[in-house]
Write a protein that binds this DNA or RNA. Structure first.
Length: 973
RNA sequence: GCCGGUGUGGCGAAAUGGCAGACGCACAGGACUUAAAAUCCUGGGACCGUAAAAAGUCGUGUGAGUUCGAGUCUCACCACCGGCACCA
């Protein structure tokens, strides 16, 4: 292809316009109150030059891409798909009159730069900056209309100081269940026993006493400690010692969301459960809001479903089972609390299972509920090889603890467990049921304990079958032929009558209601909602991330506690290191910087860093006000860009939506970034820092672009096409156009080099629709001899085709144009880029045959073309303007030219072609006047010769006439 | 296993319940050219026909249904893609 003649001089046109846009700052978006340069095309379009901008700005439109992680490899042709879609929309919305915010930045913290640093000693900042340079060059070569003045990187101290600031807001807030929102921690009410009765016991008094007398009130200190613990345990950012995912190869802990199939999402390394002290964010407090508010936003069903599944809400009941009293006199009674979604099956509970890590197990050992010998009548398959219950439990707990979760899930083909020797009492019928421990019950979900109903739960059924435990039917399937064993759906309760309560004969929903009410009345349980969602593990043992604005101190009794740094201490910069590995003792790399860690007054800095997701949780807010030194975003600015606004009555009539108007990105962030960002946004909303409860009003996932071989693009397959290749060979405009022409945005679709050439040919046709062939030949000859730096000017040699005249359009030409306007406009509104492009092609195919080409028609066409193919459209627009100055005076800048409005009157035909069917089969197409009434249509249809062949001599039973559409004649026989 | 999505020519794909295959790729024929490239014009679902047409029949994963009429709506099934997966 390289040897063939260029379709048009894109190699000169594209750099030329990118430079003009850059110098003119064409796509700079203006904030309320910002001064606008006199000659900026946006100011001219909206007549805002020299006026106070605040009140005058047109409605906003915020169009956002998921900002990339700048890897060293650069972009391949799959990357620009989403960027192209948003850019087309941004340019379209500008033409409609919106104030469009379309920014780009870098999600730049991350593991690859750090791993490279460990290997080579090169500072991650240096690697990151190099990668950003590469990415930026490539993205800029694609001609997107980003406002680069708002560019940001999450690794900039001016950025992450506000990430740390938001962390302080989380740290200094708690979730008040009464108001159902986050509130400052200062408003936390202490329980009575922790209330300060005596000012002398206040922390301040305590500190004074300590300093002056080297002595303190022990009681006051205890109270002070307990108050602090109480408060710290309720913060939205809190420290917790609990089993977390530890990845040895990555040298860090990971969040639930970052662990896939028992392996790290990054790198696919093994992960193990390990109890560690970690920072957590209380996302579970927002489970209900995160779920409910999905109904208020326009996301794809599949994406919403993914979030719903991840949040995993289930309604059910908690039920208390008394453990059968121990033989030790005077020992306290114990209760096992279980969660079930099927309280209606309570009569079928024939045993109980505790997770191996359940805290009650140790307590039961201590209280003697667990017997020292196997109870009489214990079956052989229940005891295994263990001498006594204690040994059995200890052995099983040990086996379970050394299993990784990979083994626990992947190898769990067969159920395992151990009998504790103890029994519980089923509250509905007083029956004694054995208590087991088994790792198919997870400590982290519900109460960590279950009542097992083997008749109506697959897992319980498997377990009961293996260990020979009783299986009792309590639900009758609606269809009597269905086997009740393992029947899990709704049916009718049977065998469900006890001394105080009966639900026999009730349908499942009623049975649930009745038994739950009874449990509540007896104090034996209550209606409960459970979520799969866990709190967000928020610390990482890494170097290249945001340090926590937290220090650790020791109380007078030596007890460590944490404290937030003041806002004035932000940003907390990471220390300079030469070695980026974790320490030999397994501490994070930051711990190597002793001078940094140990503060003069004796406290120590937190050495964990935040996860990569922190920076991306709020970057869309920083874009609004990227340079603001005083706030993470200015209040008026936030309200303008994120708040919903009444549509202003002007032409055109744009409407704004709350939050980001359009967010486009890959589906890989469904339960990571998109859930975390919603969570932070809701906290900021509760605290009054943002105007909307949801950040992203409309979200579209672009489908993946596969390699030409229909496989996902990857280095190992060797099918990766870097963006630079098509940009060199056919230009950015052709690349952009093909990205959108391949098919619907959301679909997965394969790359096609031939296809790119096809749209490139189309652009050549557009070019030839406008330019004079002779002048182009002269240009080409001049180009071969000209010096490189003068070539850009040679474009001026190219003249417009002499058929382009400043004359009125013929009716047929107007019709072609307006059909195109209608289709492109409607398709852009529906994000159907591929069909919009086909409409542009239809227009060009027709216009190529015109003997005279009216300037006004071509100008409107260029406005339609401009969002897709901005460089070529600008070049042709400029030529039209130069050669037809009078007619273009009110259109100085193509990106801000008014989007044409389609006139339905121009599309009305005088004659129409109407298909005629006989018995539903097409037999003829007849020409009729457009205003023909039903009777005339019917008569014309019957008069058709072809139709006559099928209806002659037959009885007409019925005639269906659809005005302007079709006639269908139904005949007998 | 559960949830979501998608099945239409050789290929990417279009079609408010109303002419299936717009637009493009690939292909074939022609024009221009010494020739090629580029460009322009023409053709095209399959089958059956025919010198060539016309006419006809069948066609949107499979099978049923609703309807004057179904790619589109309903039910059942099959295949592929994505997500979740001992979550009680």
């Amino acid at each position: 292809m390289a040897s063939s003649r260029r379709q048009y001089p894109f190699h000169l046109i594209e750099p030329k316009w990118q430079q003009i846009w850059d110098i003119q700052q064409t796509f700079r978006a203006f904030n309320p109150g910002e001064e606008m340069p006199e000659n900026h095309p946006f100011a001219r379009r909206h007549k805002l030059a020299g006026k106070p901008a605040a009140a005058q700005l047109p409605p906003k439109c915020y169009i956002l891409d998921m900002f990339p992680y700048p890897s060293g490899v650069g972009l391949h042709v799959g990357h620009p798909e989403g960027y192209t879609a948003t850019d087309i929309l941004a340019r379209y919305k500008r033409a409609l009159g919106f104030n469009v915010l379309h920014p780009m930045g870098w999600d730049a913290f991350g593991l690859p730069a750090e791993q490279y640093a460990v290997k080579t000693g090169q500072h991650p900042r240096q690697t990151t900056e190099q990668n950003i340079t590469t990415f930026k060059r490539q993205i800029q070569s694609l001609g997107f209309s980003y406002d680069w003045s708002r560019e940001l990187a999450t690794t900039d101290p001016d950025y992450f100081r506000w990430t740390q600031w938001i962390f302080l807001k989380l740290y200094n807030s708690w979730f008040n269940p009464e108001t159902n929102k986050a509130e400052p921690i200062s408003r936390l009410k202490f329980p009575k026993e922790l209330d300060l009765e005596d000012i002398a016991k206040s922390p301040e008094a305590l500190e004074l006493a300590k300093l002056e007398k080297k002595d303190f009130d022990v009681e006051a200190l205890k109270l002070w400690n307990r108050r602090r613990e109480y408060r710290d345990s309720r913060r939205l950012a809190y420290v917790s010692e609990q089993p977390v995912w530890w990845c040895e190869q990555l040298g860090t802990v990971l969040a639930n969301e970052e662990v896939v199939d028992g392996k790290s999402e990054v790198g696919g390394f093994a992960v193990v459960r390990k109890p560690m002290r970690q920072w957590m964010l209380r996302i579970t407090a927002y489970a209900e809001k995160l779920l409910a508010d999905l109904d208020t936003i326009e996301w794809s069903t599949s994406l919403k479903e993914m979030q719903r599944n991840w949040i995993g809400r289930s309604e059910g009941a908690e039920v208390n089972f008394e453990v059968e009293k121990s033989l030790v006199p005077g020992s306290p009674s114990e209760t096992i609390r279980v969660f079930t979604t099927r309280p209606d099956t309570l009569f079928g509970a024939t045993y109980m299972v505790l997770a191996p890590e359940h805290a009650l197990i140790d307590q039961m050992k201590r209280s003697g509920v667990i017997p020292t010998h196997w109870p009489a009548g214990t079956r052989n398959e229940w005891t295994g090889n263990a001498e006594n219950p204690n040994d059995a439990i200890t052995a099983y707990q040990w086996t379970a603890s050394i299993k990784s979760d990979l083994e626990r899930t992947e190898l769990a083909k067969e159920k395992t467990g151990a009998f504790t020797g103890a029994y519980a009492i089923n509250p509905v019928n007083g029956q004694k049921i054995p208590i087991w421990i088994a790792d198919y019950v997870l400590a982290s979900y519900g109460t960590g304990a279950i009542m097992a109903v083997p008749a109506h739960d697959t897992r319980d059924f498997e377990f009961a079958t293996k260990f020979n435990l009783p299986i009792v039917q309590v639900v009758q399937p609606p269809d009597p032929r269905t086997d009740w064993q393992g029947f899990m759906d709704d049916g009718t309760s049977v065998n469900s009558t006890g001394p105080e309560i009966s639900i026999t004969g009730l349908a499942t929903p009623e049975a649930k209601k009745k038994i739950t009410a009874w449990l509540e009345a007896k104090g034996l349980g209550k209606k409960t909602v459970n979520y799969k969602l866990r709190d967000w593990l928020f610390s990482r043992q890494r170097y290249w991330g945001e340090p926590f604005p937290i220090v650790w101190k020791k109380g007078p009794d030596g007890h460590p506690y944490h404290e937030a740094l003041p806002e004035s201490a932000l940003p907390v910069l990471p220390p300079e290191l030469t070695d980026y590995k974790p320490t030999a003792t397994g501490e994070p790399p930051l711990a190597r910087a002793k001078d940094w860690v140990n503060l003069p007054e004796g406290s120590q800095r937190e050495t964990n860093t935040m996860p990569q997701w922190a920076g991306s949780c709020w970057y869309y807010l920083r874009f609004l006000d990227a340079k603001n030194p005083n706030a993470f975003v200015g209040k008026d600015t936030e309200q303008y860009w994120m708040g919903s606004q009444e549509p202003k009555s002007q032409t055109p009539d744009p409407k704004s939506t709350p939050g980001v108007d359009l967010y486009v990105g890959g589906t890989e962030h469904a339960v990571l970034h998109l859930l975390y960002a919603r969570f932070w946004h809701k906290v900021l909303y509760d605290l009054g820092y943002v105007s909307t409860p949801e950040p992203f009003f409309k979200l579209v996932n672009q489908g993946m672009v596969l390699g030409e071989d229909n496989q996902k693009m990857s280095k190992s397959r060797g099918n990766v096409i870097p963006v630079d290749v098509p940009v060199q060979e056919v230009g950015t405009d052709a690349l952009r156009l093909f990205e959108m022409f391949m098919g619907p945005l959301e679909m997965v679709k394969p790359w096609s080099t031939r296809g790119v050439e096809g749209v490139y040919r189309f652009l050549g046709r557009v070019w030839r629709l406008f330019v004079d062939e002779k002048s182009e030949t002269e240009f080409e000859q001049a180009e071969t001899t000209a010096e490189t730096q003068r070539r850009g000017e040679l474009l001026n040699l190219i003249k417009l085709d002499s058929a382009i005249k400043d004359v009125a359009a013929t009716p047929a030409q107007s019709k072609t144009l307006h059909a195109c306007i209608k289709k492109v406009t409607e398709d852009l509104d529906g994000l159907r880029f591929n069909t919009a492009i086909s409409a542009l092609m239809v227009f060009v195919n027709d216009a190529m045959t015109w003997e005279t080409k009216p300037v006004s028609v071509l100008r409107d066409f260029l406005i339609l073309l401009q969002p897709f193919v901005p460089h070529l459209a600008e070049e042709l627009w400029a030529k039209l303007s130069i050669q037809n100055p009078t007619s273009n005076i009110q259109h100085p800048s193509l990106p801000y030219a008014n989007w044409p409005k389609f006139d339905p009157a121009l599309l009305i035909e005088s004659e129409m072609e109407i298909p005629v069917q006989v018995n539903g089969k097409l037999r003829d197409v007849i020409k009729v006047p457009a205003d023909a009434d039903n009777a005339a249509l019917e008569a014309a249809a019957k008069a058709s010769e072809k139709v006559q062949q099928f209806i002659a001599g037959k009885a007409i039973k019925k005639v269906i006439v659809v005005p302007k559409k079709l006639v269908n004649i139904i005949v007998a026989g």
